[in-house]
Each structure stands twice: as C-alpha cells, then as structure tokens.
C-alpha cells in the first residue's frame, strides 16, 4: 500500500489523518484534562460566525420583497419551522430556537467538512454524543416537567393486551435509552465513513500516479471520477444527516410534549 515516491506519505495517504485534532493554543491542564484551543474549536466558532453573520447580513435589508440571500434565510427558517410544526404542532414551537440552532450548526459543520482541507467537527463522536445528549436530556427534563409521572405513558402504548404489556414496556424502554446512541453515532459514522471513503479513493489517484507513471495517470481517471461522484453523494449526505438529526430531534420532542401516542 505504501508508495515510495512521496515522503511523509502517512499524512497524504492515510485516510485517518484528516480527523487529527491539532492544538492551536494550549491553556494548560484542568484536573488532568488538557484544555486547548484546537482546529475543531476554530471550526465551531467559524460555523457560529458564518450562521449568525450570514443571517444578520441576509436580513439587514428587512426587504418586503426578499433578495437572494434573504430568500435563503427565509426558506431555511420556514423549512425548520414546518418540520417542527408538522411533528409537534404549535406547542412545540417553543423549541424552535433549539431545533434551528441544531440544524444550522450541524449543517454548516457538515458542509465545512466537504471543503477539501477543512476539518469535519461532526466526525468526532464526542461532539455528536454531546449534541444527542443535549436533546435526550431536554426531552426527559421537559417531559417530566410538563407531564409529571404521566411521562411514563410513553413506555406503555395504549391498546396493548395486558399479557404482552411487560414485553412491550421493556422494548420501549430499551429503544428509548438507545436513542442518544443511535442519534449520535448515525451522524458521526456517516461523516467519518464518508470522509474515509473519499480519502481512500482520492489516495488511489496519488498511488497510481506515483507508482505506475504515465499509465497510472491514465488509469487514475477511474478513481478520480469515483471521487467526484462520491463528493456529490457526500454533499447529499451532509445535508441529509443534518435533516435526519433535526427530524429525529423533533420526533423525540414530540414524545416529551405528547407522551402516550
């Protein structure tokens, strides 16, 4: 697998290298954990700046007839609002800022990752787990705060015969507890696998070109076209995973708002 034409081929060909977290500034250790400003943090703040700045610039005109950028902002707003309203009804609109934040944050971070050379924050499981746990804790906290003990009806769907009810309750509890796991790992694994695949195919081009010379350049068209096609697919996946994450958040929030459905 190693090409001998390049020095330091590990960083060029290794598909894992792109997920490396690099320290920019270290702030020392707190309780044995090193706190450092990393490339991951830089991209997070980049996403925050892009989202807030973009929205503010787009709505700066407050035009009655929207321009191109204001249309994008409005369409995104309506898209997320419709998604939430469809799942939870008007009662769920109090979570709109949270859902919009999740959607825009994940979408922009995913799309950042699609730009060659940039870091994909959402390919780190700790980030997606934190976001999924945020949703999970919100659902549980709000569910108990609003419904009290009636929140447990979530685990006992109505219309189930009494003799299989214990089994159903067990399954419901397991599925409820596994939600943050699947919720977070889905985003993480999709981003990770997509970027590894992209990098592997892109690496083939370099290997063919350095290993086989002119013939390698000709054959290298095959992995190149594959990379182009995969990039298109990954763009779709980047959007779709942000959408799925948000949609599932809406569905889980609906459980907190209306348990026993």
């Amino acid at each position: 697998m190693k090409s001998n034409g390049l020095k330091e081929d590990a960083s060029d060909m290794d598909p894992i290298h792109q997920f490396e977290i690099k320290k920019i500034v270290s702030f020392g250790h707190i309780g044995g954990v090193e706190i450092a400003f990393t490339n991951s943090a830089a991209f997070m703040f980049g996403a925050v700046a892009l989202i807030v700045g973009g929205l503010m610039l787009a709505t700066a005109g407050r035009a009655l007839v929207p321009g191109r950028f204001q249309s994008v902002a409005e369409i995104t707003y309506e898209f997320v609002a419709d998604m939430l309203r469809q799942c939870t009804g008007e009662a769920g609109m109090r979570f709109f800022p949270l859902v919009f934040t999740l959607f825009s944050f994940i979408l922009v971070l995913n799309l950042f990752g699609m730009i060659p050379g940039l870091f994909t924050v959402t390919s780190h499981i700790i980030v997606t787990v934190a976001l999924a746990l945020l949703v999970f804790v919100t659902v549980i906290g709000y569910g108990f705060w609003k419904n009290g003990l009636r929140f447990f009806k979530l685990f006992a769907p109505s219309g189930i015969p009494i003799y299989i009810l214990p089994l159903v309750v067990l399954i419901e509890i397991i599925s409820f507890l596994s939600r943050p796991l699947s919720h977070s790992v889905r985003l993480f694994a999709n981003m990770l696998a997509g970027h590894i695949t992209l990098k592997v195919f892109a690496g083939f081009i370099g290997m063919l070109a350095t290993g086989l010379g002119v013939f390698g350049f000709v054959v290298g068209i095959l992995p190149l076209s594959m990379t182009v096609a995969l990039t298109a697919l990954e763009l779709l996946v980047a959007f779709l995973q942000a959408y799925v994450f948000t949609m599932l958040t809406c569905i889980y929030l609906n459980d907190a708002l209306h348990p026993g459905h």
């Binding site: 977290i21 707190i30 954990v33 090193e34 706190i35 450092a36 400003f37 990393t38 991951s40 943090a41 997070m44 703040f45 996403a47 925050v48 989202i51 807030v52 929205l55 503010m56 709505t59 407050r62 035009a63 929207p66 204001q70 902002a73 409005e74 707003y77 309506e78 709109f96 800022p97 949270l98 919009f100 934040t101 825009s104 944050f105 780190h124 700790i126 980030v127 934190a130 976001l131 945020l134």
Partner: peptide
C-alpha cells in the same frame, strides 16, 4: 475535554445569538 468545552461555548453562543437576535428578526420580517 477541550472539544466539549469549546462545543458548549460555541453552541451556547450560537443558541443565544439565534434565539435573541437573528430568529426574532427573521420572524418579524415574515
């Protein structure tokens, strides 16, 4: 550790900026 810290700061900042400034503005326009 550092990822969680910066994620918390960035996400909270984004949430506050969106909920307090950007989204009310968009909602007002609509």
């Amino acid at each position: 550790g550092s990822q969680l810290l910066w994620l918390a700061i960035a996400f909270a900042a984004l949430y506050l900026l969106l909920a307090r400034v950007a989204l009310p503005r968009l909602a007002a326009i609509l």
